[in-house]
Design a protein around this nucleic acid. Structure first.
Lengths: 217, 217
DNA sequence: ACTTTTTTAGACAGACTTGTCCAAATCGTC
DNA sequence: GACGATTTGGACAAGTCTGTCTAAAAAAGT
């Protein structure tokens, strides 16, 4: 069995390697130039692959865009899921731990390369291909917000927070975390970790002034 | 004098009318299709003008983009300036008046057509033409934030607010106001006034829980 | 070593755009 | 009604891009 499978894996590996390389280059070029301005020759060159190979793998330019979006949304969802698992459910120092969580969230989901790409692709092609992002639209932010809201609700139950509406609080938490990064995000600048920490600290401080309670017994 | 000027004005008027019509159509098409995908024939058609006229007015496609961005940023800046003047400097019911202000801000600046266009153009072409938006980058949001921060500082002085850093508070106020609209803004949906009011109410309530003080005497 | 699959490079047609040119037509003014 | 400026429609060359095709080369598998 193993000898029969091993070659398959080897083939699949090089195949997959090229596939990923193409998707990566395509993501970069689509984001930089927009769908209409993206040049398949350029994508092939950046992927270190011949143009024909691009067509062999993904057939169409539109198809390639679909594959890129699928890939990126999957990676982002994975990052969000992973980061949500680090939420401070049983905090000791709530402020510090929420700051850490906010920094992780931004580093793993919003401010990394994938986040930037998704934001840009969504903005540029969202209206032209509405069903392209329909899946992410339903399973992405809404799920994230709901999960975060559930965590906040638990913190409220255990006496750390005083909340009217956990869903609103979750959205506000995320908005506050990005408050200081708006400009950088909109201009596509890279944000240093120091900026990230400052932003998160300001956000959590405001959030806890609004919804925090003295540490429960 | 008047007979000598009148024709000039008449000429200028029709000229200007066509100019605006072209800029309007160009903004729509650039935003919908991106710069590379925008078709000058289409712009001319949507402007109800022949293609040659577009070239007569703006020469180049790139030049046309510059003109569009200049036009939009000017309108946005005017809207911001106008709306900032309605800030409740001497409030009676601070919460209600801040909600009203937030709604106006969104209606006149962020959520209207110009705001949507600027966001999209910035996202799509900001990296390719960095100096195109350099002017707005310096004189736009930074000025807005500073002006808003000054208003909040005055509210703090007169005993309505308890602020550490008015600049941070201003950015947080704006972030909170958009917290509930993120999805709609990112997907380019239109937002109803009811949504705007709800979002503003949630935002102001959170903001005042964090920074509000009981009404001064 | 032989076979099969994948990749490559290049040529290619078809379509589409941009920006220019020009002659006819339209418009407002004298 | 005549004049000058502006607009129009269409034709045009030059360039770019997509997607296909082909035969050679490379890689992988048996």
């Amino acid at each position: 069995m193993t000898p029969a499978i091993a070659p398959d894996i080897a083939v699949a590996r090089s195949h997959t390697a090229k596939r990923l390389s193409i998707l990566d280059a395509a993501a970069r070029v689509f984001c930089r130039e927009g769908f209409a301005g993206a040049n398949i020759d350029l994508i092939a060159a950046e992927a270190g692959v011949s143009r024909q190979t691009v067509y062999n793998h993904h057939g169409d330019k539109e198809n390639l865009l679909v594959a890129v979006v699928r890939e990126i949304t999957e990676r982002i969802n994975a990052g969000v899921f992973e980061t949500l698992a680090t939420f401070p459910d049983k905090p000791v120092d709530l402020e510090a731990e929420l700051v850490g969580f906010a920094v992780r969230l931004n580093q793993n989901c919003m401010c990394n390369r994938d986040g930037k790409f998704l934001r840009k692709l969504l903005q540029t092609e969202g209206e032209r291909y509405p069903d392209l992002f329909a899946g992410w639209r339903e399973h992405g932010p809404a799920k994230t917000w709901a999960a975060l809201a559930a965590r906040f609700a638990r913190l409220a139950l255990s006496g750390w927070l005083d909340l009217d509406d956990p869903d609103v609080a979750a959205r506000q938490f995320l908005a506050l975390v990005n408050a200081d990064l708006q400009m950088a995000l909109i201009f596509g600048d890279t944000v240093s970790e120091a900026q990230l920490r400052t932003a998160a600290t300001n956000a959590v401080r405001c959030f806890l002034r609004a919804y925090g309670k003295p540490r429960p017994a």
